[in-house]
Design a protein around this nucleic acid. Structure first.
Lengths: 342, 342
DNA sequence: TTGAAAGCGCTAACAA
DNA sequence: TTGTTAGCGCTTTCAA
């Protein structure tokens, strides 16, 4: 009973294998009685279609590939969950494929994956979303793909994005509204262009509020805690010292908080700190970190949805999903003590 | 050129397809000249064996399945990386399969995955490692599996484990050596038996050092930050107040630190805090958290290694891997101020 | 609405 | 050391 094939089912149900195939694949044009007969046989034999045979004959695998560089664990896991939640109920599984962005075998690895496993579709996360070589290779392979938060060549594929820039703009606006004028910014990793938009939002907010931009209050981080620490030390040495620091991600913001603690700078009384991403770290810090939450799971789910739609031929011309990030105001930001608000 | 088959290669190389198959699968008994001819043809045609055909004919898929409940993102990602590092170079890919431990479809889902995708082997992480129903189903399906940190029925499969209990023992010993006597413990989620061993280590250390066990200094957490917060408030209300709190994981330890901060209790002067896992949170907290680091990636790698060995028939009788955790002493623990060390 | 027959591209006996 | 011949279990024309 452990390995019934389509022939067994057909024999038991007294129909041809083609009919079994129709029923199993939920195709139309099968009489209700026939369908029921087949389903009964399927149940009785505990029949499971063999994915390999199906894949070989049908030239598709019911497997999606998830390609990612090495962003944070939480981000990736959220993406995985979001994608799986949508695609598993539809019979698709997920093959994961972490990549090293600067690896010379990057493209070759991907080609191998797609061609060998007959991957039906690919989902890309930053910074791979903007790796032109990868993108053109995927096009050459004619495998449909969808991108989460791409920044370049958006016409190349369906994609999902958030309003990062706007969120950074709003966060900066909040700080300004609290009375801050000397607001520093720690940028993200240069490979990670999505993160660059956050800096744009910061600059735009300053400009719109007529706050002079101080280049000495910008430090370039690499998304890591360690890089944030270096930036924080520099920024806290500037004169006049910034009264708020906005980091392009939570890890770097956490580093700012640590440096501030070490230097006896009180948060938020003497220094407000804001991050971006709302990682678990954010609420485990003390004081809890003000940050921006991206709906990562939903983005991934939406991306999977767009991809599956493509696979099923519903060829909507370049569908695009836009989801909103939200400000999470916690305790690490506040009005300057002894400073009047604006 | 995009879809050469084994026949094309055979034709171009002037050999039979069986010979091509031999070369591609690195089988012995092929003359060097022949091998080179074939490899040249493979390169020229950019031939990639079709995984589905291979799987169908050979009755195996070159895909491993990773089953996990919902432990932390970092843990899972480390496991994924560790497994992939070992299995990708050997031609195996990884299908991920997050499970809901208490879901009634749990077993059915797994059966479907294994049978449909013809998964060659399965890797289990806690708490699924101890889910008897899942285990016996896997046995019935006759799919080889390996477990990471199982606590029950260890004879059922190869497995990899660490010396959790010993590490907890050592950590407790450290606290005692620093002069602490009233050491509290926050236990982990009851489904997660691996975490229970940490409590055993704590108790053993107290006993061996002749420190009376105070049941009022034990609180039952659920591995989450929120549960840790509740436990911390209770523990810090006990009389006499504990001078150290050892939590079964970092998230709960982080909660202890937050509550201490809120109550104005200085760390480590008035309270030492220790965690377990060395998650990124640990060093982003202030003061940085003393904790225990498990070599998760290496464990996963080892697990994959044991599994692949099994698949290749080298049937070592129940191989077992044991790796060591290490204490990471940071700033959240220290001698009591004004209290003489032991 | 149903079925018959022909592969999909490979591996696995078995021969030679 | 190499080749021949069957399938693996499905999907897909194309007929009926």
């Amino acid at each position: 009973m452990s390995k019934a094939t389509i022939d067994d089912v057909a024999a038991l149900a007294g129909v041809s294998i083609k009919t079994v195939s129709r029923v199993v694949n939920k195709e139309p044009n099968v009489r209700q009685v026939t369908r029921e007969k087949v389903l009964a046989a399927v149940a009785q034999l505990d029949y499971r279609p063999n994915a390999s045979a199906r894949s070989l004959a049908g030239n598709r695998s019911y497997v999606l590939g998830l390609l990612y560089g090495t962003p944070s664990a939480n981000y990736i896991l959220d993406v995985q969950v979001g994608v799986l939640n949508l695609c598993r109920p539809q019979g698709y599984d997920l093959l994961i494929h972490p990549c090293v962005y600067r690896d010379e075998n990057l493209v070759e690895d991907i080609v191998e994956l797609v061609r060998q496993k007959r991957i039906d579709g690919v989902i890309l996360t930053p910074p791979l979303t903007d790796h032109m070589e990868v993108l053109s290779e995927l096009e050459r392979l004619e495998v449909p793909f969808v991108r989460i938060a791409p920044t370049l060549n958006k016409e190349l594929s369906p994609y999902v994005e958030t309003n990062d820039q706007e969120a950074a703009y709003d966060m900066t606006g909040q700080l300004i509204a609290m009375g801050h004028r000397d607001i520093a910014f720690i940028t993200g990793h240069p490979d990670h262009r999505a993160v660059a938009k956050r800096f744009d939002g910061y600059q735009a907010a300053l400009k719109d509020r007529g706050i002079p931009f101080r280049p000495d209050l910008v430090e370039n981080g690499l998304n890591s805690f360690a890089s944030g620490e270096v930036c924080a030390r520099r920024l806290l040495g500037r004169q006049p010292r910034p009264t708020a620091i906005f980091a392009a991600n939570d890890d770097m913001a956490a580093a700012v908080m640590m440096v501030a603690h070490q230097q006896g700078i009180r948060i938020p009384d003497e220094l407000s700190v804001a991050g971006f991403d709302d990682t678990p770290v954010a609420y485990q810090l003390w004081p809890a970190l003000t940050t921006v939450r991206q709906p990562v799971q939903q983005m991934a789910r939406k991306a999977a949805e767009l991809l599956l739609k493509r696979l099923k031929g519903k060829d909507v011309p370049l569908p695009v999903g836009v989801l909103s990030s939200s400000l999470i105001l916690r305790d690490s930001t506040g009005p300057l003590s002894g400073v009047a608000g604006s």
